[in-house]
Structures are given as C-alpha cells and as structure tokens.
Design a protein around this nucleic acid. Sequence first.
RNA 1: GGGCGCAUAGCUCAGUGGUAGAGCGUUUCGUUGACAUCGAAGAGGUCGGAGGUUCGAUCCCUCCUGCGCCCACCA
Length: 763
Amino acid sequence: MKVKEKFNTPYNSKEVEEKIYQLWEKSGFFDPDKLPVSKNYKLKAKSYCIVIPPPNVTGSLHMGHALNAVIQDILIRQKRMQGYKTLWLPGTDHAGIATQNVVEKELKKQGLTRHDLGREKFIEKVWEWKEKYGNIILEQLKKLGSSCDWSRTRFTMDKDYAKAVETAFLYYYKKGWIYQGDRVVNWCKRCQTSLSDLELEYEDEKGKLWYIRYPIKTKNFPPKAGQPFTEKLKTKNYITVATTRPETILGDSAVAVNPKDKRYKNLVGKTVVLPIMNREIPVVSDSAVEIEFGTGAVKITPAHDILDFEISERHKLSIYKVINQFGKMSKEAGKDYEGLSTKDARVKVVEELEKENLIEKIEDYDHRISKCYRCNSIIEPQISKQWFLKMSELAKIAKQAVKKGDVKFHPKRWEKIYFDWLDNIRDWCISRQIWWGHQLPVYFCQNKQEAISNSQFLISKQIQNSKLKIKNSSDSHFIITTESPKHCPFCKQCHMKQAEDVLDTWFSSALWPFATLGWPDSAKATAGKLNKDDLKEFYPTQVLSTARDIINLWVTRMIFSSAELLGKKPFNDVIIHPTILTKDGKRMSKSLGTGIDPMVLIEKYGADATRFGLIYQMMGGQDIHFNEDGIMAGKKFANKIWNASRFVLLQIGNTKLQIQSPKSKTSADKKIISQLIKIKKSVDKDLGNYQFGQALHEIYDFFWHQFCDVYLEKSKEELNAEILIYVLSESLKLLHPFMPFITEEIYQHLAIKNKKMLIVEKW
RNA sequence: GGGCGCAUAGCUCAGUGGUAGAGCGUUUCGUUGACAUCGAAGAGGUCGGAGGUUCGAUCCCUCCUGCGCCCACCA
C-alpha cells in the first residue's frame, strides 16, 4: 500500500526532477573528491575528466548546448558508476565581441553608446550582464540534469584565469612568436575591431567587374594641365585592369602582372599614371597574379586588400590609406572624396572615369564578400597595427598531435577540416580593439610613446611616404609582464600605461582545459577552492565534445596551446556532435523564430524525456532534423519505466532482497538474463565508440519489448522476484546516464540490500 | 575552384553482399488491477537515376541528379 501512495501514475517529472537534483547536490558526488568508497563502489586509480565547452555568457542555452550537455553527462555518469574518479568541470566564456555587442544593444535601447559610459563604466555593465546570464546558463545546465562539480565552476575572466592568459602571452613573446606589425587585417567597421580570418562569414553577392584603363607614362604623357587623357589614349597606350571595387583606385600604388604573362612583358618596370589621382605608379611583376583572371593585370591597393598588401611588401610599394576605420573615405582619398561612404565614392569614381573614357567595359560578376560573424557588417580590410602570433611552429605541433593519434576525432572525417586549415594557415591576429576581454599584458612608457599611442590605426605620414613599413615597432618602448609594473624601465618616472587592446577571445579559450584546472600555478588555490593538484590528477582530460563550426576556431588552438605550453595533449577524444536543425532542415535561429528552447521542452515533457528525445535522434548523421515527437516518445518511455517499476514493486512488496546473483528457474528467466547480458555488452561498446543513439535504441527496445512486453507478462503467471528486481535494477543502471532523474527516483524505492544512490551504483 | 555529408515506408531515421526495419502517423481489434502515455494484428517501399564488379547489390566501384555544409588571396 505504501508503494502505491508514492507511486502515482502517470509519472510526474516536475516534482521528481527538482527533488532528485537536490539530493545529488547534497550527496556531494558531483565532486570527485567526495565520492564514496565502499565494498561495492571502489574508486579506480584512474580519473576521468571532461571540461565543458564553456557557453558564451551572451544569453541562454539553445538546443545545441542541450545536446552537448547530455552527451557529456552520459559519459560522466557512466564513468562515475564504473568507479573512475570523475570530474565534469563547468564554466562559462566571456566571449569578447559577442558579449560586448549584446550589452551595446541593451544600451542602444536607452539611446546610449559604450563611449557615453566610458570604458570603466561600460565594463561594469558587462559584468552585470555576465552575472545575470552566466548564472542562468548554469541553472539551465542543472535543469538538464548535468552532474557537474559546481564547486569548480570557472569563468574565462577569473583572476587566476587571467594569470594563465598573461603567462601564455609572455611565453610566446619570449619565444619570439608574438610580434606587432602594420598589416592589412579584417576590420569590422561596426564593432570597430580587427577580426581573425576564422571570425568571418561569407555571402555571395551579385557585383560588377569594372575594366579600367591606366595610361602609361611616356615622354608626352601625362599632358599638361587642362588637357584630357583621352587624346593620348587613342594610341592604345594604356594597361587595363579589372576590379570589383573602383573606389579603391584612390589608394593604388602599383599595377601588377604575372612574370610569365607574355602580354605584359614589356610593361614591367614602366610607370603608369593613376587616373583621378594622377599619381605615377610602377608596373610590377608578381607570381600571385592570376594570368587567366580579368585582363591579367591587377591594380594594387596595399592598405585595403590582404593580397595587395602582401604584394606591396614584396615590392616595397607605398601605402595609401583611403578608407578610414568607419568605412568612409579618408583625407588621403583627396578633397573631392573625403567623408564619402565607399558606396558614394564608387559612383563618383566611375563617373570620373567614364568622363575620361577610361572604362573599357563593365561585366556582371558574382563574388563573395566577408562579414563579421558577430554583427554581420561587411568587413573592410584595413591596414592597422596589430599583434600577431606566429603560426608556423604551432601548426606543425598541432598536426603532429593528431597525426600521431594522441588526439582522435570522432567521426574521423573531421580531421580533414583540421589539417586543411593548418596547411594553409596565416599568422593569428590576436589583438582586438574592444573593451570586454583580457587586456594585453603590454605596458608602454608614457614619455616615449608618440609612435604607439595605442595600437589602432597608426599610419603616420612617415609610413605612407617611405617605402618601408615599420617592423615590430622598434621605436616604441614597452614591456610585457604578468605583474603590473611599478617603475618604468625606460624613463624611470612615468606610470606605465597598459595597452588598450584586448586579446581575441579565442586566445583565452585556447587555454580552457588546463587553465581551468589550475595552470600555471596548479597547486595553488583556484577560484576560492583549494584543490590538491587538479592538473596532475585530471590532465590530460579524456573527452572534448563540441560543434563542428569551432573545430579550428577553438579545438585546434587548444591542441597546440596545450602541446606547446604544457607538453601534453588537452584531451584524448574529440567528439564532433551533430548540428541541430529544424524538422525541415533549416538552421535554428531566434530571429527567424525557428528556434526551440530546451527549457520549454523540459517544462513540457521533463528533463529525462528531453534528454531521451535528443539522444534518440542522434544516430550518426552530421545533422539532426529535430522532431519534437522524439521528446514525446521520451515522455511515454518515462511513463513506461515508471509503470513497469510500479508493477515490480507491487509484486515483490517491501521485503529487502539480495540481488547479487539471482537464480534462474524458468526458461523465461534464462532468456531475459541472457538478453540483459547481451544488451549490457552492446551498450558498453556503443558508448565506448560514442554511438549514443544506438546505445539508447538498444536499451529502449530491451526494456520495452523484451522486459515489459514479454518477461513482465510471463511473471504474472510465474513470479521470480529476485530475477524481476534484478533485471529492473540493472536496467535502471543502464538507463541512468540517459535518463538520470526517473531512474534515481525509482531506485530510491527498490527494496534491495546494500543499496546506495544510483548515481554511484556499480555499472 | 577544391572538399565533405546526405538521398530507404506519409514524416524522422536505423540497417545488411543473399527474399527490407524502428518510432511517429494510419487501419482493425482488445478497457477486470503496472501502464490507453497501453497491448495484439495489419496496410504501406521496384532502398534517388544510369552503368560496372558478383552466382546474386539497397549495401562495393564509377558517373549523374537533387539537397545541405565547409574551405579558397581570380582582384
């Protein structure tokens, strides 16, 4: 009768889940240092650790986060039950530009910009945001049932974490791999910062290709003032270039052709007169120029195109910065153009050229433009002074780690993405001109800083006019240190000023798996908790589970950072989980209204059902066309488990049974036991291969169709209480990693000798 | 321009070198005590197209088509 009171039907997930989570937290079993040691549960000498991919504190969790959390929780719970000293370390990421942008959007609603507040006040606001949303995220992870050790929660801007970031920066600098340089970078004119190549998104654009004639300088050309170009052009004395951006003509400093291009052989070394600007610029030869494309001659705008910049370096060309950081034409573009948008400037330039009969033809041309991955503004390549991390050595190290098999991708095919990127890598631009992030540990002398006021947009006249670019700021006076300097070593009197730039958020994320475990001072207290030596105990970690879109942005960088800074791999296995799309295969997006909030599903169906639905659909494809029916099936399954358990308990009453080695009597007993053994093996194998969906399908079929439909029905005729409760309890164990709440709740009610909580029951 | 993934029942997806499977949906039947969020039975597919290997192909190979994704300094 007691049983009946506690076991109402149908199953009520809401009540149970809240209660059970509290029970777990109270038990302390999420903390590897507090795991119980007993006869049945012996801790293995080996540890098992997953460090969570830290969600950005920009908002709340989406379906992808939910799926990933469940994947990790399944592994963690299985390993914990297997007796490993198991740690799942949680945390969040400050997510530089992304978070700064959402806070700026909030301010905009009040008609404010970050500049109205000033850096310090603005940062305060972002911290407020972080407190709010960081905590929401952690609460949502709990709702899903995540068995993280919350006492070890980390944030990428914790004090100790900052120490790790500075240490890494200093290390690379000492090695000569970090340098400052004036180079063309991807510039977002809305975010007002540089971006790395990986922080771009691309969009096809229907554009035009303008073929423009550049007159060649001769004895009689250019003509004296007042005489139009056209007179002389009849002699075919020009070279035609093709461009998609005529407005950048104003910043041209050369025309380049391929050295193998016979058509232009005689022109190399000659001088042409740049239309509109009337600037005399050279014709150079460079193998980067494609013979086949356009006319085979390309105009070179070093300040606003990455390839052009590289060519200009090889030929020591002048640099004219004609577009400013806001995407408007600069002073350098000339009086007629200064202040115009690039779009207006383009119209004007084309008009001018047409007037002079310098446009040969205009073709339709589809190409792709880059956009900021955070705000979707069009990228304006710009020359600017930035900090770079040299990649050649690090790329080699990263390739080694995967080639040797130290780190394995699942599925393996994603290794190709990894290698392809590393094979074509450029140096990493690690400085950002935003406010939210780790400021560079670079301190400048205040008295000798004219050349380095701050690292953005320092193109002095000196650079434009000279044929050399400044290398590595040899004229600036700064030091790099992990401690704030007390005295200036240069002038001995100033208070040194820290660089205003912050680091690319991925520079700090790259340190995540080891910085969270205490690196560089691993034995010291971290984040308010005194850990014995987590780095020694838990590093390298076992698994990293993440989405495919950040393989290079994040995974690769963790691998080389760890290899270089610690001489170890960060994890053994990388699980690239499927991307969750809508049922129709569309991207889930809040703004399109196609997103599904996992918290709503939990509210509606329960966390176990939500977990079930996600994993049940994870069958190895690279996408999941998410179908709510799967969650529905999960809810029904939970109810089935509930009722089957109710039945078992009604059959056997409250006598505590010993279930170590139950004796089979009938053939049905034998059959169910052998099926159970088979399923256990199979689930172990699947989970070992990270085949989560397959494992769940098998348990589902076993429990429902073999245990319930057949064995339970048989036991109505002939009861073997020991077998009955044995198979049930073993099933609950197998199910627990997938559906932890309901299994733990039922387990509480089982009359079994020497019973503990299911979370630490022997797998 | 290069690469990757996918194409099986109305929908979402498993699967195997030898007459095709699940869940949901659908049809019929079954309501006395674990569960109608259930049980039993059934209908439903020339496994995208064309070649090839094979005694035999949904599965292996080639090509094609369609959908999705990623990468690239042809301006």
